[in-house]
Nucleic acid binder design. Structure first.
Lengths: 151, 151
DNA sequence: GAATACAGTACTATTATAGTACCATTTTTA
DNA sequence: TAAAAATGGTACTATAATAGTACTGTATTC
């Protein structure tokens, strides 16, 4: 099974919670209780999401977090990217470490592998946070401009 | 980062290798050497792939493995599914354990989450093993019948 | 200036993955 | 018919990644 971590799961719950009341400022403690996770864990995730540019934060008493952009402009790729790094499926598939694979010769898979990552990326980019707040909305999958069925 | 395990990476290399010469029977030792992994690891993977119905096997001297279907009829979902279980992204998203999530009330995310898994699934199902053997072929992403842009 | 809340970092425990070993079963061949 | 070669199944160990926690620092409000 391809899976993402528990923390990312929680992170999406947090983001979804905030998306339901975007105007207000929400303290970490309030969020932790609402989502059903411990405060330390919530703190950790909120920091990461803020650091990733998805949340605005305000310090001090009456401080808290709020969405940095409107829910329509935040996708699953943004959230997963902030919590787990760039979406890729294998070591040789990520953009940053091009020459990492030791068996370049037998690995013609590489280029295609990156395409697969791209496909998954596109799928996740097609789901906005706004869509997550409503019970069931059809998800759009956009084919990239270059993609067309092989005849 | 969403990632799949090393073993699955190896598994795809194995399948790609076999796809290049589908007619012949390939022994585990030959495959291990060709792909660049140890024999025990190759054995483990080949067993899993055979058990998953992706490989036919023949025992005894002169035995070995070969693709159970033609490369065009094997997709990334098949391979990943055989090595890591069904493609899903989180515990509550998989089909088999519907009531596992403890915070059902605050989790309206669930249904959408399953849709995301479905989107990823579709993306991976759009890549055949045959396409992996050629250096660079455009990958098709099919939108599901129900999917249509929200106006 | 005290209390509250976020920011950053480092550490520990847990869990999942990767890797290995062993024995059983089937088929070929000498 | 026996030995060798190859797959089938299972269980175990070691490693690595994840999850969780704690501590210190900084900003803001009252």
């Amino acid at each position: 099974m391809i899976r993402i971590g528990k923390l990312t799961d929680y992170g999406i719950l947090i983001m979804t919670y905030l998306a339901r009341d975007p105007a207000r400022l929400h303290a970490a403690q309030e969020i932790a209780q609402a989502v059903g996770i411990t405060l330390p864990t919530a703190n950790k995730l909120l920091k990461m999401l803020a650091r990733g540019g998805l949340l605005d934060s305000q310090r001090g008493t009456k401080g808290g977090y709020s969405l940095a952009r409107e829910p329509e402009a935040i996708t699953m790729v943004d959230i997963i990217g902030a919590l787990e790094g760039p979406v890729g499926l294998t070591d040789c598939g990520t953009a940053q470490q091009p020459g990492n694979c030791q068996r370049e010769r037998s690995c013609s898979v590489k280029a295609n592998w990156q395409r697969i990552s791209q496909a998954v990326n596109d799928a996740l980019a097609g789901v906005t946070l706004a869509e997550m707040t409503v019970p069931s909305q059809p998800i759009r999958i956009f084919a990239r401009p270059s993609a067309q069925p092989v005849t």
